[in-house]
Computed example of a mutant assay.
Amino acid sequence: MDPGELGVCDAHDHLFLRSPQLPGQELEDASAARAELAAFRAVGGGSVVQWTPYGMGRRVADLPLLSRATGVHVVCATGLHQVAHYRPELLERLRGGLAGTFVSELTEGIGPSGVRAGLVKVAGGFHGLDAHARWTMTAAAEAHRATGAPIAVHLEMGTGALDVLDLLCGELGVEPHRIVLGHLNRSPDLTIQRQAAGTGAYLAFDGPSRAHHATDWRMPDAVRALADAGFGDRLLIGGDTVVAGARSVDGGPGMPYLLRRVRPRLAVELGEELVGRVFRENPARAFAVEWR
Rank of each mutant, 00 (worst) to 15 (best):
G238T: 01
V242P: 01
G239Y: 12
T215P: 02
R280D: 07
L259Q: 11
P208L: 00
M219G: 08
V242H: 06
A286Q: 00
P208N: 04
H212K: 11
G207M: 03
A288D: 13
F205G: 00
L266K: 00
R260L: 10
V242F: 12
L236H: 01
A267F: 06
R277D: 15
E281L: 15
L258P: 08
D221M: 11
E273C: 14
R218H: 11
G276V: 06
G230L: 02
V243Q: 08
A211M: 05
M255I: 13
E269K: 11
T241F: 13
H212N: 11
F279D: 03
A222L: 15
P256L: 06
G207S: 12
P253T: 10
S209E: 06
M219P: 06
M255Y: 09
H213F: 05
G254M: 09
S209M: 11
D233E: 10
V223D: 01
F205N: 07
G276R: 05
W217T: 13
G245M: 14
E273G: 08
T215H: 08
V278A: 07
E269C: 09
P283Y: 02
F287P: 03
V243R: 10
G245R: 14
G252L: 07
R234E: 09
H213V: 08
H213I: 08
M255G: 09
L270N: 07
G251Q: 05
D216T: 01
L266Q: 04
L259W: 15
G245Y: 09
P283S: 07
H213C: 15
T215Q: 00
R263S: 07
E273H: 04
R263L: 14
A227H: 01
P220D: 01
L235A: 09
E272I: 11
R218N: 07
P264D: 11
F279E: 02
L266R: 04
G230H: 01
D216I: 02
V278I: 05
V262R: 03
D228A: 15
A225H: 13
D228Y: 08
Y257H: 13
G230E: 11
D250R: 14
V243L: 07
R260C: 10
A225C: 10
V249N: 04
G254A: 09
W217L: 13
A222I: 00
T215S: 10
A214V: 12
A214M: 12
R247G: 04
D233Q: 10
R218S: 14
D221I: 12
D228R: 13
D233Y: 03
R224Y: 14
P264R: 04
L274M: 14
R280M: 07
M255S: 12
L270P: 05
P283W: 09
D250H: 12
G271H: 02
G271N: 03
G252E: 14
A246I: 06
M255P: 05
E281R: 03
G238A: 03
D221Q: 08
S209P: 08
D221E: 13
P253A: 05
G245K: 14
L270W: 02
P220Y: 00
P253C: 08
D206V: 11
D228F: 10
